[in-house]
Each structure stands twice: as C-alpha cells, then as structure tokens.
Nucleic acid binder design. Structure first.
Lengths: 233, 233
DNA sequence: CCAAAAGTGTTCACGGTACACCCATGC
DNA sequence: GCATGGGTGTACCGTGAACACTTTTGG
C-alpha cells in the first residue's frame, strides 16, 4: 500500500538515482565504461555513469538519459539489474540507486561517442580501478547477471558487430562465462538453432584464412521461440 | 554518478515505496496475500502489502517491516523482484516502488497471523480481484520470476510445510509451472539430488495410504552445490 | 613454406522421457 | 471390497561431450 497520509509527508525521502554498468567486448576482453568524477565525494575517482531520477521520467528514461549525457552512448540494449538501497552507500545523504546494465557494440560508432565525452574510459572487467560508492558491488552483480542471461537469451549479439565470425561469438562466450568451449560443438549448437544468417562475406584484413561472417536474425529467433524452441548455449 | 550539487536539490524527488507479493500454496492452488485499502485512492480495493521506505532503513528492511505491520507475516523467504517506476503508477504523486516477492508456508502459524491482521486475505492467483495501482503487473512479474526460479533453485520448499510428501512437492511444481509432471520421473530426479531427508514418519489423517514424509536438508543442498551439482527440476 | 586460424564428423555416455501395475489404507 | 492415492523399473532416444586433421590465406 502506498499511503501518502501515513508516511510520505511524515518522513524524509531517500534520493533516487540510476546507475549504468555498460559492457563492451573488444575481441578478447570484457570491458566496462566508467566516468571520472570531478566533484566530491570520490573526486577524481572512477564511478558508473548515472544520476538522479527526475520527477517526470521513468527509470528506464532516466538511465538512458544519464548514459547519453555522460558518455554519449545511445540506442543500446538496456535492462534493469537490481536496486541498491544500503543506508550508507552515499556518504552525503541517503541515496537509493536503481542499477541497469547495458550492452554496446564497441565496434560501431559508439567508441568515438563515448571517448569524446568528458573523462569516460573503458576498463577491463578484471582490472578495474578503485570505484566510488558501492559501484564495485554493482558491477559484480551485473557480471553475474550477464553470465546467467547469456546462456538462455540471445543477448551476446548486442556486444558484437552486426556481422561477425563464429569464432568471435565463441570467444565472447568464453570470456564472459570464463570457461573454454569446444569449437566444433559450439558451432554445431549455434548453427542448429537456425537464428543466424550466413552471409556471402568474409573477414577483411586478417593475417590468415578469412572467416565467414554471420548476422543474428531477430525475426528467425522470434519465430523459433514462438515455436517453443529455446535459446541455449 | 550521484551528484547532489547538480540534481538533488534542484528537482523534486519521487517518493520511494516497497510492495510485496506474498505467495502461499495450499495443496492445489497458488495464492497471493492482499490487503484491503481503507483510504483513497482505491479505497476499499485490494492491493499488495507495502509502504514507504524510511530514511534509515534498507529496502529489505522496509519490505519486511511493512509486511509484518500490515499482515503479521514474519521470517519468510524474501527477495527483491523489480523496481517499478512508471510516471503515473500512483494518481496522487510520483511513487517509485521496489517490489519484492515472498514465499510463506501457509501450513504454519502464518495463516492465523495473516488473517487476524486488518483486512488481509489470500486470493487464488488465477482469481484475483481488481487491484490498485499497477499491482496486477507486479504480481504477474512475480509469478514469472517464481516460475523461472523454481526450476533451478530449491525455493519451492519455502512454500511447503517442513515435513512434506513427495506428491505435495510434485503438485506444487505442477501448479506453479502450469504443466503436469510424470510421477516416477519426478521422484527419481528429486531423490537423485540427495538433498532430502527421508523421515521415519508418514502423513496423518488421510483417507488412503499415508505417504512417507521428507524434509529439505539445507546442509546437504549446500554441500551438493559446492561439489558442482546443480539443482534442476 | 610457414604460421595462424577456419572449417568439418563421429563416437560414446548420460540424462530425459515415456509408460502401467500392484500396494496400503480408510471408510 | 472399493476408492484413493502411494510407490516402483525399464527401454528408448536425443543431446552434450570428447576428440584431430585438413584447408585456406597472408606474409
């Protein structure tokens, strides 16, 4: 029950923020996009992009807005992660933060957009700087969620270029899940799901045999899903 | 970034509430615990137990407190579900609500505790009354989460008495997952996980052959899990 | 011609699924 | 004695896992 008369005026309200864990993948590492703070607390330290929720925007809108304002990143896969409500997360005052995670294609334009914003940078997930607030916890939670979700939802494609080689997809899974995968079995399984378009195109500028490129076909995925076929890797 | 100087004072803050979807299981139906509102909006209508988050309590604490205050329910399995932030969820003002779901043993003392609180009642999940706010959405989200989580976490036991027959457990799974299960296969699978204590006790007061009772053994479950054995049903 | 990665099938073990009858108990 | 659920085993099939060599290309 949300009962204004009993509580809302009687007590001080926590501030409400959103924070975004933005993941990117650069061929052999999972990375996170961080912002350098220029104000205390934690001035000069690194933190997740995020900020306060405005009174007339939804949480999703707030997350996208802050992400865009602070990093230039736009039009990404974005999903709510968890809401962090520890009483002392922020030393200034009580701030509850709705955390999101986002998946971006490092390969596209977005690298430039992100890096020309003020003091934003990509860090390897396994080599993060000291982080402000409880942002290390948030990133850990996001990583576990990504590991879980990658297995049974086709979200890995959000981290790859539109056209990709199967070996890239495999490396992504190996890096995120932190375990090696068998090449033949992986290919067999992915292709058997029948959700990829095999393109008449191969990699360019590689110093060895060029791999065939594929593209994730959302329509075919939806059809397969509707037919009861589960995504599973 | 949580930056008080830029936003916190400049803009009005949403109010922050928690709401709880409390599930119970009564042998052949999944039920939800609702509260009858006595104040507008939706006065006289049914809603989830919940209320505003105080400035000095965590979100989990707020959820447990409200649940206890409004329904008498205490010491239950409780987990954060999702945060609902639609701009017009509440007609009075902007309220963001962190939703939780709880699993309670209807069999224990809690039925009494719940029903003697003011205007709380159990409703079958598939026969809910009209609900206040977006609480129907919240319940639907909770149901889907429960369906997903039941498969790979041993949380179903939270809905059963401490001592239960395998057929009760099976009915629970059938009801929640909304699909029939094969008796022999179900028993084989559950028992093979080796996480139940077989008791020297049988059902009482049944009009047919009494079933053997079992108890979920948390220690054995943890050991099995540590050894890499996954829960899966 | 060498290095580096692409591409390709088969075998085996295990787990999931389908399926039907007798047993114990209370009324 | 009859109705109601309790309790039990086997056969088949499909999927997941293990595993090694040839091909292509660029340098």
């Amino acid at each position: 029950m949300q009962d204004t008369k009993r509580h809302a005026y009687a007590h001080a309200r926590p501030a409400l923020a959103v924070d975004c864990v933005v993941f990117g993948f650069d061929e052999d590492q999972l990375r996170v996009l961080l912002i350098q703070r220029d104000l205390p607390p934690f001035a000069g330290g690194w933190a997740l992009p995020g900020g306060f929720v405005r009174i007339d925007e939804t949480l999703d809108e707030a997350a996208r807005r802050e992400l865009h304002e602070e990093t230039g990143v736009d039009r990404v896969y974005l999903e709510q992660l968890y809401t962090f409500g520890g009483v002392d997360r922020d030393p200034r005052e009580r701030v509850v933060s709705v955390a999101y995670y986002a998946l971006v294609k490092l390969s596209s334009h977005q690298v430039a957009a992100a890096t020309d914003a003020r003091d934003a940078a990509w860090f390897a997930l396994d080599d993060l700087p000291p982080l402000a607030f409880d942002h290390a916890d948030i990133i850990e939670t996001a990583h576990r969620r990504l590991q879980g979700k990658l297995r049974y939802e086709p979200i890995g494609f959000e981290l790859l270029p539109r056209k990709f080689a199967l070996s890239q997809l495999q490396r992504l899974y190996e890096v995120v899940l932190e375990q090696p995968l068998d090449k033949r079995n992986f290919r067999k399984k992915v292709l058997s799901m029948d959700i990829l378009d095999e393109l008449d195109e191969v990699q360019k500028d590689v110093a060895h045999r060029a791999a065939r490129l594929y593209r994730f076909d959302e329509r075919r995925y939806r059809r397969a899903k509707k037919a009861g076929q589960e995504f599973q890797l």
